[in-house]
Computed example of a mutant assay.
Amino acid sequence: MHDNNSAIAVTAEANPGPDRTPNARLADLAAATHRFLTRHASLPAISHCRQQDGMRDVIGDIELLLAGDGGNVADAAIWARALDTAVRFRRHPDYQYVDVSVWTEADGHQVRIWDHMDPLAAYDLLASLGLELTEVPVRVDPARLLELPPVPAVDGQPREEAS
């Protein structure tokens, strides 16, 4: 397992709101991100952070990409368990990978912790749980995912799972 003290690449975009300047709204997002990662520093590592204001219905205000090479279901499940939520699997119509994500709120901001996964591995994993992958998010209890054997990474090679 990695810690969240590793280097994190941060990109940010802001759309101004009626009551705040773009820079002030972005500063709020950066502070919320810092507090969130600090509170959860012992959870699996995040490799990339994106903060975007104004697109709440499309993506999270704060997007945190799990470290690794894709298909990191165990780390997503660890985050979901810690946040008392489900792991969502969604086949995206415009991309060749499956979105694996955990959604929560932090200081009033939507947070998405995510990774991508090979579609065949996702189909197999969900089928083993009696579920079907669709464009509508399929929610899975993290405890069910943590009981499964390791899932192959995006390139088909096994990856080290968090304990």
Rank of each mutant, 00 (worst) to 15 (best):
L64H: 09
D69W: 07
H40R: 05
I62N: 03
R81C: 03
L65M: 06
A67H: 08
D57E: 14
L43P: 05
T21G: 12
D53K: 11
I78E: 13
N72F: 04
D53W: 14
M55Q: 14
A82Y: 02
R25Q: 08
H48A: 04
T85E: 03
V73G: 05
V73D: 10
D75H: 08
A41K: 11
S42M: 07
H40W: 13
T38C: 12
P22S: 00
A45Y: 01
A76F: 06
I78V: 12
V73L: 12
A77Q: 04
Q51I: 15
R56C: 02
R50D: 07
A80L: 01
A74E: 08
D53S: 15
I62T: 01
I78Y: 09
L29C: 00
A27I: 03
R81F: 01
Q52E: 15
A41L: 08
R56P: 06
P22A: 00
I59V: 13
A76Y: 08
D61F: 10
L37G: 08
I46R: 03
R35I: 01
N72M: 13
A30N: 12
T38Q: 15
G71N: 14
L64D: 07
A45H: 01
I78D: 11
T85S: 10
G68E: 11
A32I: 00
L66P: 06
D69M: 11
G71K: 10
T85L: 12
T33K: 06
